[in-house]
Every structure is written in structure tokens, then in C-alpha cells.
Design a protein around this nucleic acid. Sequence first.
DNA 1: CAGCGGAACTGTATCGTTACAGATTTACCC
DNA 2: GGGTAAATCTGTAACGATACAGTTCCGCTG
Lengths: 370, 370
Amino acid sequence: MTLNGAAGGNDKGKRVAAMDGKTKNRPLTPPPDGGRPTLKTIAFMTGLGITTVSRALKDAPDIGAETKERVRLVAKQIGYQPNRAGVRLRTGKTNVISLVLTLEEEIMGITSPMVVGITEVLAGTPYHLVVTPYSATKDALAPIRYILDTGAADGVIISRTEPHDPRVALLTERGLPFVTHGRTEMGVVHPYHDFDNERFAYEAVRELVERGRKRLVLLEPPPHLTFYSHMRAGFERGLRDFHADAVSFHHINIDHTLVEIRDAFETLMRADDAPDGIVSGSGSGAIALIAGLEAAKKTLGKDADMVSKVPSDFLRWLRPEVVTMYEDIRVAGRELAKAVIGHIDGQQSETLQSLSQPELQAAVPVSIKR
Amino acid sequence: MTLNGAAGGNDKGKRVAAMDGKTKNRPLTPPPDGGRPTLKTIAFMTGLGITTVSRALKDAPDIGAETKERVRLVAKQIGYQPNRAGVRLRTGKTNVISLVLTLEEEIMGITSPMVVGITEVLAGTPYHLVVTPYSATKDALAPIRYILDTGAADGVIISRTEPHDPRVALLTERGLPFVTHGRTEMGVVHPYHDFDNERFAYEAVRELVERGRKRLVLLEPPPHLTFYSHMRAGFERGLRDFHADAVSFHHINIDHTLVEIRDAFETLMRADDAPDGIVSGSGSGAIALIAGLEAAKKTLGKDADMVSKVPSDFLRWLRPEVVTMYEDIRVAGRELAKAVIGHIDGQQSETLQSLSQPELQAAVPVSIKR
DNA sequence: CAGCGGAACTGTATCGTTACAGATTTACCC
DNA sequence: GGGTAAATCTGTAACGATACAGTTCCGCTG
């Protein structure tokens, strides 16, 4: 291999551009070392122009096959990684996915496994996960506006959807890719992942009726959230199909504090028409219900049975008499991440919708026999 | 107010720079609207140079008081927010704090309240929180190297520290601000926040001995983590001071699965020299211990008492007979965030160290009297 | 051999910001 | 009046990447 001039060699007889000394695209000076490599570094090492290197790394059609190979090799050797700020400034692409969370969303820690699931998927991509919180007591639109106004992310993940969700309307209108954890009812087709709460409640009723329970109560989500109606619908369909009655508990929902839930439920359980079957829409809520039931001097499994949706397996360890249906939040996180990326990549929203089914949690495995 | 030329007015008789038409710093054309405002927008509106606007917003000493006022007013009116990519490219400042997490760190969801605590503090700053995961089974240094190599963050939060932690060594050597959740023993002074596990174990022993327990067992952290020795030290100091004996359970620690812990503990509880007092270093571990104890046909509160460290209040709702000491992870998140920012701002590391004390959790409040 | 098309590569301008080195004006002094 | 310092403002270049509009050279055609 021959070397022609200061620039790197090229022994295939190709012409070498004139070096008039005023070029900036063909770096003649080695980049100051110590810093991380840039396109300039590779350009210097290969003797190519910065533009060529950039295009070679993108596999552009107007770059020679051998050149691409050389560039890729050098880039890999020196561990080149594109400067995110440079890309972002020039192209607007942030390579950021924003997870928008309520600060209050913290009961029973739904966030942890979700973040894990999301990052598992993002690990194989150039995307970073940025957590953008908001106070539920304030404006849920604020973080969305911030992201839109500052171009802070390429995609957004939101949860706690409402049937007519202003965040979904805004994001759709402004064309920013997003995915929701939960569905909407706005006639807008958008990516989502959801847990089948209708099915959950229906199966819960079936389970309770099979255990001989007839007077059922539901600890439901707050009415403004979409999955409220899903869960209620499943509950009521179950009541009809399996011939059971509902006991009213509408003044309390899973967003109430544990103490509130317990106190209200204790009152209910002391009433003459106390329920004998309980469907709990949340794992932490279930704990408060159990406490209320026991405060009313009733016994779980005897005076009443309970089916609860749970995000972990604590309840089944501590109260195996509760029937638990597992909602895998980690999987949800994975699905959500895949869906936003799909949306960013221009896939059809219809293909980015998924529903996960409740799984009846098996009993804790018993290892030691006696 | 008079207007001189296309540029905004200035009626105090100050000179107006010659407009030779080739300037780029004094924008003569309105910025393309629809986009978000930049310094150029403000420069156009005020008739000032871009540089002046930039310096005015930073309150630089060489800008007139009235000019600053005008610039600030316009900036506020049009909702100017600096472009992060521009700043980052030019200055290297990312305005990012990176939370480095193990994907496996998920038992009992320590992450949720931590993320909430951190974002609560960051909300009042220009910092964003980026979650950077790694697989504990692989190289814990990988994410640190990534951040260092790509300049991905201004500050880093790490947890699960070891006495000689290579991450701390690397970050210190490379001068990137960080804070650890947990201490180290390397002779390196660095910001940290930690829970006083020594005190926790000591007080736990006191509590158990006061309840008449004499043969105590500790469910400890894995030995390679720093707080292992803290907790052990507190436990042993307690044994000495309060005259109790230790029952060995060293082959199991809080990183084992719940099933492993339960099975091992069941075996232990069936032995002749079974313990009568239990100190659990983790809330989820406590659940497995309870299960093991009950599998061995023993009763909590009768055959043995337990004190556990917990990050939430489930255990006290479901098993009020367990004495729980609360570790407030949300507060930890806040402290960690404050400490990294302090470190970034150049505060002395010594002043950025804090230790939170275990609080004996009060019983669940009883509201309904009968 | 002029002309032309295509392959392969390159220069320039630009995104938004800031460091740095001027530039202009005014005030003031001898 | 000339010189100087202080106050205030401005232009240019640069950070790293990319879009776009060339440029160079080759082979081929008529």
C-alpha cells in the first residue's frame, strides 16, 4: 500500500482531492487527543472528508464499498460514538424517550418494574430513558407541553389514561409519537398497551361464585380513568353470567389512602348486607381491604373470599388465601417501549396495540416436604 | 420612543452599531415563526446582537442594567428556553443526572420512590433524570464507562456500593461528580447518602432482647456490599451489649430468592437450636422468613419475634406483629439528588454526606373504635 | 475527441449556544 | 484637544453532525 501525501493511503488509483490548505472538511491536523473521537478523527485517520465519513457510516449509496469498510473498521477500532448533542442540534433527533409519571403514582411501586422493562428494550437502541414527573394535583398537560415546546423527546410514554385524554389529543395534534399505558375512547387510533381489566374482573367474579360467593363488592379505579369502565363492565358481566349480586362501594376507589379504604370497608363489613366476595382492583388496596375485614372481626376465606390484581407476589406469600391475578408491569414496560419506538419508526398504530391477559397466580412453590 | 432602522428602538441616545448587511450576529430577518424561540428571536425583537442577548440572560457584568431588563422581559414573554443541544454542544454541560441501576434491583421496588425523590429535587433545576441500567450479572462498570466516554451526564447516582468500589475509583479518577447510595471504605472522600444499618441492627437486637429473645439470627446483605459489615457490626454490638447469642445463617442473604430464603429458614427453624429472634435486613426477605417460620409450624410473636427494615408499609399492615423500621427511600432520593448537584456545583464532598436514621414504624392508625 | 452520465468524494452552510477578541461611545483628565 | 479608561455592545469562530450542492475523474458514445 502506497501513501500519497499526509492523507491516508489509497492504492487503487483513485484521485485524491487537491489539498489547497483552506479545506476544513479534510482535517490536516490530528484532532487533539485525550478527547473522544469524532467524525474528524476518523476523517483524519482515513484521509477522507468529514462528509464522506458521515455518509459512509450511514451506509449511503454514493460511497464506495471499500471506503465504507475502511471507515467502519476505523470507527469501531477507536470506539467512535456519535455526539448526541451534535446530532440533536443538526437533526432535531433527541434519541430520548420520555416516561411521564405522576409523583403520586407510587403506591405499591408500579414504577420500578416498568422502568426496568422499558430500559431492557431501550438498551438495544440509541434511546435513553428520561423520567419526567408531574404532580397529579396540578396540570397533567404541563409535562407534555414542556416536551412538545422544547422538543425534549422523540417519543413519550404516558399512563393513567382517561376516556377523553387531553394529553392524547395534544400529542396527536402535534404529531409527537407516543404510547399509552391504558386505552382511550376518543376515536383516535394510537399505540397502547393495556391490561385486560374487563377480563380480570369477569374472571374474578367467576372465581368467587365458584367458591359459593353471591354478594360481591368491587374496589374500583377512580371513575375518571378509562380502566374504571373496563373493570366495572367485566364485573357486571360476571354478575349477570354467574348470577351474583353487587354490593355498593362506589364512594371509595383505589386512589384513596389505605386508611380510608380500610375504614370504609370495615364499616361495610359490619353492615347487615356485608359482601362475601371481594374483587380488588389493586394490590395495595387489597391490603387495606383485608385490614378492614379483619377489623370487622371477619375472616378471609371463611366469611369472605377475595380476588385481587397484583403487580408483585407479596400478597400471595403473606395471604395465600387471597386469589391473585398477576399484572406483569415489567412486560408492560417492554411492550410500551417497543410500541413507542415502532411509532417513531412510522409503523401503523393499529399494529402497536396490545392487551395483556390476567394470569391466575400459582401458589408459592413448596419445596420442603414433611 | 423612536425607531432607528429595522432594529428595535433605543431612545437613550446610545449609538447603534453600523449595519453593513453582512452581520450575522444582529439578525435582520425575523426568525421563521412556528419554531421555538432562540437567542436569535430575542436579538431580532430587541434589536440587539445575539451575543448581547446571551450575556444579558446570564447577567454578565458588561451588559447594561436596562438592556438586561428588556432582554429578560422579552425572553419571558415569548417563553424562551435555551436549546439544550446547543448548550451541550458548545459547553459540554448536559444538564443530565444519570441514575445507574441494576436491572435486578427490583425486589420490593426500591426504585420507584427513589426516582420520585430524585425528580422532586430535579424539578426545580435544569437537570433531567436519565435512567441507565446494567445487568448485575455483567459488568457494573460498563454504564459508568459509557457515561464517562460519551459525556452523557453531569453527575451520576450509584447504589449497592462495595467497600472498594471500582465505580467510585473510576469516577473519582476521571473527576465526574457523583454520589453513592451507601458508603465505601477506600479512603476517598465522596458524597453519599446512607441508611444507618449499624444502628438499625443494634436497635433491632435491643428490641428483641427487650422482648425476652436471646437466640438471634440476622438475614444479612450479601457480603460484598459495604452495608453488610455495617449491619453485622451493629448486630454484634447489640449481642454484646444486650447479652444475646447469634444463630448462624450466613449461607443465605437478602439477594437470594424468596424461595431459597424461605426453605433455608424453614430448615433453621426446625433445628433444635432454632432462633427466637429475627433481624431482617430487607422487607421482602422478611416475607420469605415469615413463610419459612410458619412452614416450620412456628408462630410469629409466640415462638419468635422479628424486626425488619422496610421500604414501605405493607408488612406492618399484613403482619403487625413484625416490628418494622422504616427506610425512607424517597427521602434518600432527595438527598442523593441534592448531593450530586452540590458536587457538580463544587461544594466540598464532606458537606454532602448524610446518614438517615431508622425510625421505628408506628402501628397502623386505628380509626374506628368499637 | 467533445460531450455526457455516473460513481465517488468534498466544501459550505447550518442547527443554537458561548468564549474570546474586538469595536464603539462616553466620560473624564491633564 | 488628545488621550485613556470604563461601559457597553458586537462579530467571529467553534462545538459535532448533516443536508445540499457541487467537484473530480472515469468510461463510454457517436
